[in-house]
Simulated scan of single mutants.
Amino acid sequence: MHTAPRTGAPSGAEPRTTAPATTAPRTPAPRTPVPRTTSPRTAAPPPLVDRFGRVHTDLRLSLTDRCNLRCAYCMPAEGLEWLGRAEVLDDDEVLRLVRIAVHRLGVRSVRLTGGEPLLRRGLAALVGRIAALGPELSLTTNGIGLARTAAGLRAAGLDRVNVSLDTLRPERFAALTRRDRIGDVLAGLAAAKAAGLGPVKVNAVPVRGVNDDEIVELTEFAVAHGYRMRFIESMPLDAQGAWDRAAMVTAREVLARLARRYELVPVGRPGSAPAEEWRIAGTDAVVGVIASVTRPFCGGCDRVRLTADGQLRNCLFATGESDLRALLRGGADDAAVEAAWRASVAGKGPGHAIGSEGFVRPDRPMSAIGG
């Protein structure tokens, strides 16, 4: 199992850019209303701020390190050594940490991640409990279980989903993921859209000589189905340590290929979402690029991450973690957990430093950190 030192002041800051000014119009499917609450305090809590003045309002919350795919750029074919059940936060522990984040730290949005979060037992009930605390609530998934869960998750209070899909070719999908499940992913995308979990975003990681010939094809697919396409530069977070910068398709290359097919109009970017986005001229379709390596956006980072075993990371590329699970299980009160959270964020570094001589890869791979 991959672990990292448990420290309160990890180095590095997660890259992030700004959010698009526009979203594709959608008509939400009917759902059972979920009451959204606000903080019981009469005044807003003090911001969760680091030493560079960055305010953190976005929590990435991993619900499991397990996954039902074996994507070649993420993990070996045999998978990894998963966390034991006792090591993973239970639902009450998850809810307590989210409540502290929202009510005491000013977190406004929560993204549920994994591994594959749809593998979490009782997910819809947990989504309902988190949604009742009031944050904007989204989920990143490989889409395999989405066809049977999308409507229930929407009814429970989930707002939107991001679905990973690196290829449209069945044989290539099977080779990349080591599973023949592309039909389930496509059905999951359709179910998410029908349930009103929009804008439905499709995430692809183009790798040179592997799937980079599908950049335009994937975009055409997304446009045709009303999804929002996003391309993500590959990052040195695979379990095998085999990341090769030369195989990474850069944001510049992605945009150059798209420009041969479309006229791209830059979209305004208020806020601090990770994707730079462009509207395809003459349409409402939007395509985005997350250029974590070649266009790092650490200066606007507003994210913190909790792993499935309750370790707080103030950067995706942090080399240390703060053990909130130990505090919870040791009887700490909310004030002590809040203090540890603030101390970790206060120690956040200026940037991830990929490509520099001083860059150190995290001990945990992406699937164990939470995507």
Rank of each mutant, 00 (worst) to 15 (best):
L105K: 03
L258D: 04
G145Y: 14
S164F: 03
R54D: 01
T319I: 01
T250F: 07
I144G: 08
R6F: 11
E217R: 06
H56A: 02
G310K: 06
K193H: 11
A291R: 10
A343P: 03
Y262N: 05
G310D: 01
P117M: 14
L123C: 11
D309E: 14
L168E: 01
G12H: 04
E276R: 15
T17M: 12
M75H: 00
I354M: 12
S62P: 14
A242P: 00
F221C: 03
D184P: 04
G53W: 09
E233K: 09
V88G: 09
D180H: 11
G320N: 07
A222S: 13
R104H: 13
T64Q: 10
V249A: 06
S164V: 03
D302C: 04
T32K: 00
G79C: 10
A24N: 08
G196F: 05
P25H: 07
V34H: 02
R66T: 09
L218A: 07
R361Y: 10
R60H: 14
N211W: 09
G288H: 08
R99A: 13
E87C: 08
T3S: 14
T177F: 10
D184G: 05
R99S: 09
D180S: 07
H225P: 03
I100H: 05
V216I: 15
R96E: 11
V223R: 12
A247N: 13
C315L: 04
P296H: 00
L327W: 03
L133H: 05
V289S: 08
S272I: 01
R121H: 13
W341M: 15
A194R: 07
L95N: 07
M366G: 07
F231H: 09
I369V: 15
G152H: 04
E233N: 08
L165H: 06
A13Q: 05
G358D: 14
L61T: 04
V49W: 01
A343H: 11
F297V: 02
A224C: 10
V161L: 13
T219C: 15
R364W: 15
S11N: 12
S62N: 11
R295Y: 00
T141V: 05
R295P: 02
L97E: 09
A273G: 15
G134V: 13
V360R: 15
T32N: 01
S292P: 06
L118H: 12
A29M: 06
C71D: 08
Y227A: 05
G320P: 12
